[in-house]
Design a protein around this nucleic acid. Structure first.
Lengths: 323, 323
DNA sequence: CTGAAAGCGCTTACAG
DNA sequence: CTGAAAGCGCTTACAG
């Protein structure tokens, strides 16, 4: 390559390094040769010398899920636009775990890794930090020193949900959540329960299954099979909420929002579909993305700070308007 | 590292190479040292020497879409289990294009790349091939020599859809498709139209927008605003079908399947939800995944062969049973 | 602005 | 089974 261009290896290196001091003339020669040979800088070799590879790893499970796939889309796009390249490490049950993914992260000398699902052990996370990685955790509540936590104000949203129901005149509240107690879901549950209690309202709780449509279907069915079914249900996730609504409507012929109010969380695309028209809280995907890029790609060095973003209420038609 | 273990660099290399000749004794020493130092083999450097990096790139747009995110999940999981690591290159409009993604593929010396969305130019695809990459294209109809095409039998499915409608007694057929003429969508449209024509049935066509729920909503609305609305609609995609159903039901108060039959394509999760219960064709995700892994990770060298998989009919409740 | 040299962290014949 | 040496494809001081 250098030979064909008639210059030194250094020169070709400089030709592909933005801002390197090289004359337009030699650059042209290099570019011509590159075009002829189909030459592409080997970023792996480059990463070996510079102290960065340009790789940022995204550790995630349940990619097929509406919220996570949207976050993945947003993150991958923005990271890419910031000049990074995204490695996706699937940490689902069947496909290895968070630890294995974190190890890959080390093997490929990622500049940074962001954990969307699961919680890493302290020890391996520390290894990542030690290797110079930036580590950002999304929606975890454990705080590892040196990492950054980006999260959502679950407490406030859950409180709002309870308040909304009460104000609209619903009295027999219920909560549907999955059996997988991630920090986010637990926070939503606890705050909803606490707010209801303060207001003197009882809350029926259904907890089980994965965070999926089927669980919502089950939960809704179970709740409505009791002697005194609820008249308002906070489903801790839109997927659950869709299941709940379908149970309520198709299995029990109840109307939403007249007979029963429903609130979800995430604002997945389906929440806006006419069949659901679900009142919910929108995940601050843009904020999460923006800050992740800032932390991970822009090399902000100032003491990394945790952030809590608001999940904004999206008013739709699954809750009766206050009287 | 080698020093701490008291062995040569070669020895530590062999300790991490499965099947290398090394005594249990020195392996133990190396492992102990590795644990103490938190050492992880640098796969980038390794990739420089061996002729493979272990990286396989997935080029994809619209990751947030139900079908694509499911395929991505399946592919990433299986590739990972086969010992590969997945790089996701977002080729959406706003985030660079297929060419840019393919260039990254070259920069990172991927062992293989699979194109889920978009069609690469011949020239750059050729560069990938020249660099020794395996290149698999999903659902494209252009055939680049040296690449493998994995696709779905769109023609047959579309023919089946038309036949099903006709047999069930529907007479005023319609087709809803997006304005983006990907090979798959075009094939579905053309075969549906041809089959209907053979049977002497006219088909109203609505074509526009992205392949999304909103387009379906629009298409359904437009079709039903005419003097003679259809009584059966083949939506070329489930997302479109959901939009169509919502338009039909919520805007025109028609019943599915009594007043109008609907068939979709993809079998996304939502197609199975009680609010839709959509008859559709299931994408052969398992087949696609299996063959991709086989081609990409298992190093099958035999002359690469294109494959066409069947999309199996999933009978649900959006089409009336034949009389 | 340019080139020769050293080095990034590995692996792989090659001897032993 | 093991080590010394060469080399993968780059970048980066260091002189000029």
């Amino acid at each position: 390559m250098a030979r064909l261009a008639g210059v030194s290896r250094s020169a070709v290196s400089r030709a592909f390094t933005p801002g390197a001091s090289i004359s337009p003339d030699t650059r042209a020669k290099v570019e011509a040769a590159a075009a002829e040979l189909g030459y592409h800088v080997n970023h792996l070799a480059r990463g070996l010398m510079r102290q960065q590879t340009g790789i940022v790893c995204l550790i995630v499970a349940d990619i097929h899920t509406p919220y996570l796939s949207r976050l993945l889309e947003s993150l991958s796009r923005s990271l890419q636009e910031a000049g990074k390249v995204v490695m996706v490490l699937n940490a689902g049950r069947a496909s290895g775990n968070v630890e294995g993914a974190l190890r890959q992260t080390l093997n490929y000398r990622a500049d940074a890794t962001v954990v969307l699902s699961g919680t890493p052990y302290r020890s391996i996370a520390q290894s990542c930090l030690d290797s110079g990685q930036r580590l950002v955790l999304l929606n975890r509540d454990d705080h590892l020193p040196g990492t950054v936590n980006l999260s959502v104000d679950n407490a406030r949203a859950a409180r709002t949900a309870a308040t909304l129901f009460l104000r609209a005149g619903y009295r027999r509240l219920a909560l549907v959540t999955s059996g997988i107690g991630t920090p986010s879901l637990t926070a939503r549950r606890d705050c909803f329960l606490a707010t209801a209690k303060e207001a003197g309202a009882e809350v029926a709780v259904w907890e089980g299954g994965a965070t999926a449509y089927e669980s919502g279907l089950q939960g809704g069915t179970s709740l409505f099979s009791s002697d005194e079914p609820p008249d308002a249900i906070f489903a801790v996730t839109d997927l659950l909420a869709c299941g709940v609504m379908d149970a309520v409507r198709h299995r029990f012929r109840r109307r939403v929002p007249d007979d029963v109010g429903v609130i979800g969380f995430d604002d997945i695309e389906q929440a806006g579909w006419a069949s659901y028209d679900l009142t919910t809280f929108a995940q601050p995907v843009a904020d999460i993305t923006e800050w992740t890029v800032r932390l991970v790609a822009d090399g902000i060095v100032e003491e990394p700070q945790d952030r809590v973003f608001e999940a904004s209420l999206v008013w739709r038609a699954s809750v009766a308007r206050s009287l």
